[in-house]
Design a protein around this nucleic acid. Structure first.
Lengths: 166, 166
DNA sequence: GAAACTATGTCAGTTATATTGACATATATA
DNA sequence: TATATATGTCAATATAACTGACATAGTTTC
């Protein structure tokens, strides 16, 4: 941290550091979504479909409202995306067993295949970044990212070893 | 890293770790944009306007094509957003001095005020996360984020101390 | 058992952000 | 002079979100 743009002004340094943090999030997210978006476009799907497929693959048997609270979108928005995925055979809905109003969501084989193709890309990108940066850096990355996330509920999705720092 | 969900399968652990990375990016970005979006909505502006205001504030005197290559959108998309910002007095355009075809962009006072309000929110979020995580973790965060970003051109926006690891 | 609440779905209208393609203008460079 | 570049604009389209209103089936509570 010695070679900063402006010299020895600690206030500027702090601002520069924080702005870099902001920008890194923007650039990382932009590049992280670019390739999956291209794969999805070939099938007439968009980023919203990816998010649904991803989380249903991650938590099979999740309900529609689980999905709504993760994505933080309205049910009307989800509806169009989800019903397209069901219609086109990527996602299967089972009636809930304890509560029969619920629709338990899971990927079909077709859905799982697409999920793999999409996530593979992002997984590789993360893997390369993690490997290049080293285990210690990965710990730091996780601590910071966890601090950026709002809801304790979402932070709880991540592992206990990180959570205990709070 | 001792308490993982599944026990002692190292392959599972790796997959779990990578998926956490993917999800952290999603959740962090989702929460990072939520509050500025709300402020913008009051003025009839959206996230796209924020990005323009942010980068023009960051690099005063940048050209339209600089902005296009950072945002990676088409000029037609930028056009509507940028001309609204000019029309409503957030951004001022000067004719380029060396090349008079260029429009050099800078924030007006009104624009700078909005930029401050919007960025303040994100800056505070990052600041809190950085402070809670500690300096070492911040280094790790930056290393990993830099690894996720594609273009060397964009990586070069960040500081030399990190860049030299490559 | 009726009333209230919950999970989900759907209709209709609207907004923001992006796209592609075509063309125009001013300026710079070979 | 010819060509390339920086910018702007018109038109049509797509996607992903929103709000509001209403419907249905199933669960819970009084």
């Amino acid at each position: 941290m010695t070679l900063m743009k402006s010299g020895a002004n600690p206030l500027f340094l702090r601002d520069e550091e924080l702005r870099q943090g902001i920008e890194m999030l923007f650039f990382a997210y932009r590049d992280f979504t670019a390739e999956p978006d291209a794969i999805l476009a070939e099938r007439g799907l968009g980023r919203a479909h990816h998010r649904v497929i991803y989380f249903v693959g991650r938590y099979p048997g999740m309900t529609v409202s689980d999905l709504l609270s993760i994505l933080k979108i309205t049910k009307q928005s989800l509806s169009r995306v989800l019903s397209q995925l069901v219609r086109e055979g990527y996602i299967h809905q089972d009636q809930g067993v304890e509560d029969r109003r619920q629709r338990l969501l899971r990927l079909t084989d077709k859905g799982a295949q697409l999920e793999k193709e999409l996530t593979e890309n992002q997984r590789q990108r993360i893997e390369r970044a993690f490997r290049d940066a080293g285990a210690e850096a990965v710990d730091g990355f996780r601590k910071v990212m966890l601090g950026i996330v709002n809801a304790a509920e979402d932070r709880d999705r991540f592992d206990a070893a990180i959570r205990k720092r709070r």
